[in-house]
């Protein structure tokens, strides 16, 4: 039964997408709430540099060394950005743009130079190949499981443990960083851990969706969930559910139209966002038209 599931290529592809969505939503919710969402943009681009550097040092394209390398690259990106900002010579937004472009450009050039040995192409690096994740497998309990899925599973558990253990701290540091600092909760350390986990998730999702589509999974479902509920505990499962819907519908549409699966899944997260946004706007319109008795009429 289980082996049959892992033999089914469509099931593998959809499940990989679902794992990307669930693993990305966990840090994503907090990044969106804290107004740091664009650091994902920086980190996921820089990961390309980390992946090729780790490959040059160890000749491994996946596995624990890549996860560690990703964590280090993420911290390097954020630290470089902050160092550049601290000189007072460059504003934060420009610093983010400069640092990730530099690391990404270095990574792409190194891939171009070593392309023949690394079996990587800059285009696939950028876009990922979720359609091919089932080709590289590793045995887990006697079942051949795609390497990407194992890595994503590990990262999902890691993220889940972090968010559950530090739920209270994350909540406080997100909504009242000054109080969190006053209570000695080290919001800076929490911030760096969150970004490190985002980088680790990015590298686990790398084969499947590449750095840019990964941003969609980190930001869009949590932002959509935020428009649907204000309860933090509901946002995380809601975001995971939204990306599951996006992955399943995206897969079938992609097969139907014969287009990129990862791209279609990410596009569907955007479609869901627009749907929720429109429903919200419609609801507001209706509420405005029908003034609640006892409340003053809205200002014309």
């Amino acid at each position: 039964m289980l082996a049959a599931l892992f033999d089914s290529i469509p099931a593998m592809i959809v499940l990989t997408g679902v794992l990307v969505g669930a693993a990305a939503a966990l840090p994503g919710v907090f990044l969106v709430l804290r107004g740091n969402a664009m650091l994902t943009d920086a980190i996921s681009h820089s990961i390309v540099f980390g992946v090729i550097m780790v490959w040059l040092l160890t000749r491994e394209l996946s596995g624990p060394v890549q996860l560690i390398g990703a964590g280090l690259t993420g911290v390097l990106t954020v630290a470089l950005t902050e160092a550049l900002t601290r000189t007072g010579l460059v504003k934060t937004d420009a610093a983010i743009g400069l640092v990730f472009s530099m690391l990404f450009a270095t990574g792409i050039l190194l891939i171009g130079i070593f392309a023949r040995q690394v079996h990587l192409h800059a285009d696939t690096i950028l876009l990922g190949e979720i359609g091919f994740v089932w080709m590289r497998t590793t045995p887990v309990l006697g079942v051949a499981v795609p390497v990407s899925m194992v890595m994503l599973g590990v990262v999902l558990v890691l993220n889940l443990v972090f968010v559950v253990l530090f739920w209270k701290e994350l909540k406080l540091a997100t909504f009242d960083p000054a109080l969190a600092a006053a209570l000695g909760l080290a919001p800076a350390a929490l911030h760096y851990t969150l970004l490190t986990l985002t980088s680790v998730t990015a590298v686990a999702a790398f084969d499947a969706v590449g750095p840019v589509l990964f941003i969609a999974f980190v930001i869009v479902p949590p932002a959509t969930a935020l428009l649907m509920t204000r309860r933090l505990a509901l946002i995380v499962p809601l975001a995971a559910a939204l990306s599951t819907i996006a992955c399943v519908s995206g897969y079938f549409l992609a097969v139907h139209w014969n287009v990129a699966i990862g791209g279609m899944m990410a596009t569907m997260t955007g479609v869901l966002f627009v749907m929720v946004l429109s429903m919200r706007a419609l609801k507001r319109q209706l509420q405005h038209r029908r003034p609640v008795p006892g409340n003053p009429a809205p200002w014309p």
Partner: peptide
Amino acid sequence: LTPLKTDAQLGIVLSVYFAVGVVLLSHIQA
């Protein structure tokens, strides 16, 4: 229309438009 912060606004637009681009790109390549 939403209370989302600037970063999230930019991230959503960047990634979703790019995703649509990837879909169209694969269509052209096919």
